[in-house]
Simulated assay, not measured.
Amino acid sequence: MKFPIKVICVGSSLFLSSSLYMGARTWTDVKGRQIDGEILTKTTKLVKLSMKGKAVEIPLTKLSKADRDFVASWKPSASESNKKQQTKKLGKPSSAEVEACFNIPWPKLVSADVGMEIEEKSGEDNTFIYTSENYEFVSNTKLSKVVVKRFAVLFEATRLYVQQIPYASMKSYRKGANYKVMLFDTMSSYHRAGGPMGSAGVYMASKDMIMVPCDSLGLVKRGSSWALDYDKTNKTLPHEITHQVTDREYYVPGARGWFSEGMAEYIAATPYRSGKFSANKAESAIEQYVTSFAKKDGRGRNLGKEINAPDLRQFMMMSYGQFTANGNFNYGLGALLVTYFNHYDGEGDGENIKNFLRALKAGKTGEDALEALRAGRTFEELEADITKGWRKRGVKINFG
């Protein structure tokens, strides 16, 4: 067995009910070697895993007994027929609809409905299901509707923020789609279900689902009930929510890494309070978050005002495994690049990055897609433009 790159999309720190619903875990073969992957399907002899974006079939006889037992107890979260029905119901947007979304104005203030209603019902295996307008939260612990409403507002606001950025991320426009989120009362239950060690939450792309422990929602246990810690801020959640509502075309080589993580960092670092993202303050907030530590919560990448960066082409084309291997630096630099292309490049209208995304939607990848971003410039000329753009704002980027 090989040692593939993890297929879990990670955020600023890494990010559901029981393992019967989730198949993400570290797998061990009979020789003790390990791989990371997530179950797609199983038979009496084989298990199909999603690893590094690819489906791989592994004979059960090659897995450890613990893994074979896990496979035996695992059940899919939804049938393939249900997934197909949902896709058919949602439909595919027309090219005119996509283009219209590229041409919306940049948002200044994004507000979610703080008066939303939360529905509650009992789920299987002693779980509790809470539903907001667009999200379904499955929890292994009972929560009050008031508490759920507080964090559901953040989920709904983040979806709206992604929708209102002129990136034409059409997935964020789905209405009543019930994006799936699974909640855990303890970190140990989160880890037992496949949550990565040392993580605060994770978006599982193959299941289109977020896993998150209650602590990462800002919840604290007081007696037998849960309450919200109002002093606790959260940048992990908006990051992972952004991944969940971003179009899959934006995760291909040439974009996955610097753009996909940089965009999620851009959203997460934008000032947020009580259902509102202050998008007009995003640029200065991101600069502070990347170069130092945020004043409010002390969190940040702390890369400093002078940053020695790798060759730009190399950075944009590196594999996702390479990108996450130096996560703090690369996520921060990705956020600075996304901010530059959003607001400082060309006429400051984000047209070049939108052309890049148009190219991705047209099926281009790698340097073919990046050609639209360069807009006739060599990578060296683009490096110079980025350096000049950020130097005006007190940040020096030295590409090597």
Rank of each mutant, 00 (worst) to 15 (best):
I210P: 00
R248M: 09
L20P: 02
V30K: 12
L49S: 10
G37M: 07
A325Y: 06
S188M: 05
F315D: 04
Q164N: 12
S122L: 13
A285I: 00
M209N: 06
T387H: 07
D67L: 00
E367T: 13
E156W: 01
K84C: 01
P107A: 07
A157Q: 08
S216I: 01
N308Y: 14
N234M: 01
D69V: 01
V162F: 06
A78G: 12
A335M: 11
A96L: 08
S172W: 15
D67W: 01
V220N: 05
H191D: 14
Y203F: 14
E133K: 13
G363A: 12
L333N: 05
T87F: 14
F102K: 07
S225K: 08
Q163W: 14
V290R: 04
K171F: 08
M170P: 00
E351F: 03
A168Q: 10
P4Y: 14
A294M: 06
K84Y: 07
E261P: 07
E124L: 00
Y21V: 04
D36V: 08
Y340I: 06
Y250H: 08
L357K: 02
D345Y: 06
V30Y: 10
I129V: 15
V30C: 09
A200K: 02
T186R: 13
F323L: 02
K149M: 11
V146L: 10
F329E: 08
F184R: 08
K232H: 11
T365Y: 13
K2F: 10
S50F: 05
E133V: 03
A309T: 06
R301Q: 08
K145P: 05
K207L: 06
G91W: 15
P310S: 02
S95L: 03
V212E: 11
H343Y: 15
G201P: 10
K364S: 12
G218R: 07
V202W: 05
S292F: 05
W258R: 02
S144F: 01
G91T: 09
L90S: 12
L237F: 09
I58V: 12
W390L: 09
L357M: 07
K232S: 11
G123W: 04
V98P: 00
K295Q: 12
T87C: 05
P166R: 09
E306G: 00
E57T: 08
G176C: 07
S216N: 15
V245T: 09
R192S: 03
A72E: 09
F341N: 01
L60R: 09
G223N: 06
V202S: 03
E38Q: 05
G176F: 04
L46F: 12
I386Y: 10
I165N: 10
R391D: 14
L336G: 02
V252S: 05
F259D: 08
V98H: 07
N355T: 10
A269T: 06
N103C: 06
K121H: 14
R391A: 15
E306L: 03
K142T: 04
I397N: 07
L237V: 14
D29C: 03
M211N: 06
R174D: 15
